[in-house]
């Protein structure tokens, strides 16, 4: 049994909160640069250039790439041979989030209650998703998620008869309704199957895949390609000013489901598709 201390978790989460907000992934930067070559709108090209420049400034000065440093969404993959010593794992995660957001000069965007709405002043609590996995490692991913794009996400319980086309229609409808609001070019996470909450989590997890990655299942890879092409024909473009680069990528994750159901969740991420992972 491997022992991991409370302090190790605090430090790791704190570092990941800062690095996720300062350093945009190379996959996203590469994709934005490819977008500059593809984009037909002059304004759209300018926007994409500004985003590449912005990522460089954020990383050079170690400041957040976006002022909305998000809800701290934390994924924990806890090896079943791991023993956390010195305190409560979730408390350690929250202490790490507070430390990272305060010491890293990140914006505190969490309110204590959805209706009372008083700022907690340290961006806690985190939204934590935990998986127990084989092995003796603890893998932590911090994925700060901005409010603008999260607000444009949607879930629908389709009848199985709606099938593949029903899924495509719902994804396109969601992206079209979102228009300029979620800061396109967007990354689209689609969760299909499971049940109500599983579909939403699948969509969120799909956003953690690298931009440019393809689903290993051939049919799903084909669906991702078709969705990306269709979204980029909507005309929304960078920031919604019109153009052909509306989405950088579409990732579809699936899970078996009930004979009566076809749940579909669409989680939209802005171009600041931020997440950083570390294994202890």
């Amino acid at each position: 049994m491997k022992e991991i201390t409370y302090e190790q978790v605090v430090e790791t989460v704190s570092e990941l909160c800062m690095s996720a907000n300062y350093y945009l992934g190379e996959d996203v930067i590469q994709s934005l640069k490819e977008g500059i070559a593809k984009e037909k709108s002059e304004t759209g090209v300018k926007v994409l250039e500004q985003l590449v420049e912005n990522a460089a400034i954020a990383s050079a000065n170690q400041v957040p790439m976006c002022q909305d440093t998000g809800v701290a969404v934390v994924f924990l993959e806890v090896g079943q041979e791991v023993h956390i010593t010195g305190g409560d794992l979730y408390q350690a995660v929250n202490e790490g989030v507070a430390k990272g957001y305060v010491e890293g000069y990140l914006r505190k965007s969490m309110v204590n209650d959805p209706l009372i709405r008083k700022n907690t002043n340290d961006n806690t609590p985190a939204v934590i998703h935990t998986k127990i996995v084989p092995g003796d490692n603890l893998t932590i991913t911090v994925a700060p998620k901005g409010g603008g794009s999260e607000n444009m996400s949607a879930i629908k319980m389709l009848p199985p008869s709606a099938g593949r086309q029903g899924v495509i229609d719902f994804v396109l409808e969601t992206v079209k309704n979102a228009g300029p609001n979620p800061c396109p070019p967007i990354v689209v996470g689609v969760g299909i199957g499971g049940n109500f909450e599983k579909a939403a989590l699948l969509a969120k997890e799909a956003l953690l895949r690298p931009v440019g990655s393809v689903n290993p299942n051939e049919e799903l890879a084909e669906l991702e390609k078709e969705l990306l092409e269709s979204i980029n024909k909507l005309g929304i473009g960078p920031q919604g000013f019109g153009g052909v680069v509306t989405a950088l990528d579409v990732h579809v994750n699936t899970f078996p489901c009930h004979i009566a159901s076809l749940p579909v969740a669409v989680n939209i991420n802005c171009h600041a598709a931020r997440h950083k992972t570390k294994t202890i």
Binding site: A58, V63, P64, M65, C66, Q67, D68, T69, Y105, L106, R107, S109, G147, G148, N151, N181
Partner: peptide, 19 residues
């Protein structure tokens, strides 16, 4: 805009538009 906090010596933190 709701800017992020200014680092020591900076005028303001990151400051992009909100929806």
């Amino acid at each position: 805009v709701g800017p992020s906090p200014a680092k020591p010596g900076a005028v303001i933190g990151s400051a992009g538009p909100t929806t």
